[in-house]
Design a binder for these strands. Structure first.
Lengths: 267, 267
DNA sequence: CCATGCGTTCCACTGAACGGAACACGATGG
DNA sequence: CCATCGTGTTCCGTTCAGTGGAACGCATGG
């Protein structure tokens, strides 16, 4: 499979935030997707719950749900009558992961870092103002902390997000546009904070986060560059007491790994 | 987290096949989901491709795509203009996997089987006439064979499907209703074949497949029972030459594993 | 240099998606 | 034990939102 010229930074970021649908949006399709979004928050919901949440009639919610059920995007528990996300979403999601070229080329490198350090290793890609972790190799600590968490985190609360923003103006700007909602004990709360930590990451070539997404954890991230542009990040993550003493050793290891991935991207 | 009385067999199977929408289907939502389905077949498609495939106007396809793009379900390559599945689907899919209770209780057992045998281990659940593999622990062989394949396989071409149908009348019937499309050198082509292999699996307590889904591979599966009903399967998989000599040893190992999972389900 | 393909935009028509009301069921509790 | 409240589900008339077709700007290539 041949890699096209610049295949690593070519996806158009979605706008999504706030209801400025500007005309070219299908209403029923939009609310159908909103239904799915409801289940990103709660695992199980009833027709009435969703109707309330979306501000539509119960009949409308029911109609949306049944169409989603017939396509396998949602399944209904036929004891409780409640609805939840369906297996078909899992299938499609797996397709997305399997087709991610960058993840493929990075995987062997990630495995090496994982074995060399024993830490949880993450591979994140920028998506608007967030980072989505498309691969995770976790040890027991990571499993304990992350297993029930989603794959998307705001860039200003992760070392990966900061280091990507440091070498990717679009990602930087997207986070600015979305503001800096505080998370646990997040250090970044203002545009000035953001500028500071990002430029520090730019000079260092890596970023560290202490308890910014999860209390008591530390992560260290380096960017994966493609033509001077950050298209991904490699990071390790874990309880602060196991990561902090290692940072000095981890940074060069991660940097080498990142460079290997960058090379494989063909830049 | 408490497990409700019969939480393991309570999802309503979707109907999906053939256009008998019987009235309660949202047309635009339906075609939007059809758009996503297009990308289950091809990784990248243009507006015109999709319009042709769905038999709608180009403008309609474009409108559907843009709404899906704004929600992150699809992304557009802004060099080629082509569309592909978006990261948000990956996120939702991961949620589905993470919330699958059965997978959670099975995981440690699967890991044990994986280490004890060195083979690729699959954990499949019935979904209508198919089996969806919600967890895979692969060795190098499995990675080579499966890495680019989806997670859903028709039940009559897999040991997992056969052994689930053997102890799950609903899954059995769903496959009958969907017919027996041939795959590689599939042995099951008629209702009679199906009845034969399934009843054999029922008597043996396990099922074996030779080159039924993938040429030159063998898989061995046992059911995970919950109150005498198959709610999942544990299977090992690999090149025939590495699996076949081991079958005698694998069956009791898998059976023991399956029983441990069943116990954990609370039946 | 025109012909053909693409992705995108606009607009008038109409059928499809909406909300409200009524339904059947089960769980509560007076 | 009946009344009340909640659920998920069904039906139907109104109207608005989704449709297809035509036109656009831009590439490609014969």
């Amino acid at each position: 499979m041949s890699i096209t010229d610049d295949a690593w930074c070519t996806t158009t970021p979605k706008r999504h935030l706030s209801g400025d649908d500007h005309g070219s949006a299908l209403k029923s399709v939009g609310t159908a997707l909103d239904v799915l979004e409801c289940f990103a928050v709660d695992t199980e919901l009833g027709v009435s719950d969703i109707a309330r949440r979306l501000g539509v009639a119960k009949s409308t919610a029911h109609r949306l749900l049944t169409t989603l059920v017939t396509r396998g995007f949602i399944e209904q528990d036929h004891h409780t009558g409640l609805y939840r996300l369906g297996l078909h979403l899992f299938e499609l999601g797996q397709l997305v992961q399997a087709r991610n070229e960058m993840r493929h080329v990075a995987l062997p490198v990630l495995r090496h870092v994982h074995q060399a350090t024993g830490h949880t290793v993450n591979f994140g890609v920028p998506d608007g103002p967030d980072v989505v972790f498309v691969e995770r190799l976790h040890n027991r600590d990571g499993l304990r902390i992350l297993s029930h968490w989603g794959r998307r985190l705001p860039s200003h609360t992760t070392s990966s997000g900061k280091v990507i923003a440091a070498f990717n103006a679009e990602a930087y700007a997207a986070r600015v546009a979305s503001g800096f909602p505080p998370r646990v004990t997040g250090t970044v709360r203002t545009h000035a904070d953001w500028e500071r930590v990002v430029s520090q990451a730019r000079h260092q070539g890596y970023a560290v986060s202490h308890s910014e997404s999860f209390e008591g954890t530390t992560s260290v991230a380096v960017p994966v560059l493609y033509r001077k542009l950050a298209v991904a990040s490699v990071s390790v993550f874990g309880p602060s007491e196991s990561i902090d003493p290692d940072v000095e050793r981890l940074v060069p290891l991660l940097t080498a790994a990142s460079r290997r991935v960058s090379k494989s991207l063909g830049a």
